[in-house]
Nucleic acid binder design. Sequence first.
RNA 1: GGGGGAAUGUCCCGAGCGGCAAAGGGGGCGGACUGUAAAUCCGCUGGCUAAGCCUUCGCAGGUUCGAGUCCUGCUUCCCCCA
Length: 421
Amino acid sequence: MSTDFQPKSEFLRTLQERGYIHQCSDLAGVDEKAAAGELVAYIGFDCTAASLHIGSLVQIMMLRWLQKTGAGKPISLMGGGTTRVGDPSGRDESRQLLTVEQIEKNKDGIKQVFTKFLTFGDGKTDALMTDNAEWLTALKYLDFLRDVGRHFSVNRMLSMDSVRMRLERDQELSFIEFNYMCLQAYDFAELNRRLGVNLQMGGSDQWGNIVTGIDLGRRMGTPQLYALTSPLLTTASGAKMGKTASGAVWLNADMLPVYDYWQYWRNTEDADVGRFLRLFTELPMDEIRRLEALDGADINEAKKILANEATAMLHGREAAERAAETARKTFEEGVMATSLPTIEIPRAEFDAGVGVLSAFVKAGLVASTGEARRQIKGGGLRVNDVAASDERATLSASDLTGEGVVKLSLGKKKHVLLKPV
RNA sequence: GGGGGAAUGUCCCGAGCGGCAAAGGGGGCGGACUGUAAAUCCGCUGGCUAAGCCUUCGCAGGUUCGAGUCCUGCUUCCCCCA
């Protein structure tokens, strides 16, 4: 926001010109700390799934810039404790409580991604990972109420967006969810005590929770704490980012193949290219301005660069180039690339004869044989680039290409190789 | 405590005289057009060993040849009165 603020720190200047900033409790205060390299900033991540998805990428990038610009120390906080409670922010309905085992498993999956974006260690700007289960699970109810709870004003809590929304719509808000913001606020104060944290960042939906933490900190006698949130990202067409029909755009490669990740960025809408280049790559601003100015079909070049850069940051340069090459062969040369996502199937099963329908189901391109039938009617399925028309057909050795695979396609963009082993 | 509503296709919203695999949207997927974009138009949007069979309308029973629809009990939510 505050477009007229001129940051002197490289950190805030970068965040501002790249569009990461939605709201900040005190730009000048954060700027000063950043310039002195004295920020200790954290972002909390819920452990509701086994991997983070693109929706969390903006936040992760903020931590990365913090480190890269030498503004301070980035801390990624696993919500091992808070996830047991469940954040009501931005949700119409209560979410189902996850089991503790599930949360632990998710945590392991989520942790992986941070090592790709941040450098961990003990140095001043080295990143740190911690887990609020460490202190939250040990809390005693009465002690917590007396030491922390007395600082919360229910009047104020009721006016928070996340709460008010539920109340106004007469939707259930359980007591446990109501407590979420108390725990998150307590995290902020506790992290200040433990690690000297002075800044919490997050998505714009976290503003209320973060500010509540600042408030609690003041009442509990911490030094001044700061809040900085990023805008909620939607595509130019208004869709929430990170969700596709086949599920979220996961960051972990075992949940979304690198090729598919690359493709996600490659298919960015024209109108989003500039914004995404700023947020999800580290290309110099001059270069970005040049790329987003490209007209018509030329902007496809910018999309490829976006895909390359974004994929390289997460999965490594080499994997990104492989994905780019696979895409080039597939789309520009119309050749079959053996590096397309591959599903293996036991040789014996293949030799026994696999129906086209179930082959597409196995490949994960369709959810059921029924859907496969419908797609065939609509002309959406292809075997080795030839439209499938007979739903009773069976794949056999004669369908194998020189590389010993069968190429299955759904639409023009989704391809999977089926490989008997 | 009393009275009145509501719950529908496992993405969401929502219609539904006893003949219903269940209208219509949104979203999503596919096709056409393009540039692997957007917009637009068209099709599809319970499962299967598929001219048949099976499972779906909060839960459990009942009436009926036949129940999303009628009856009884229960659960949850909302509104009004106290």
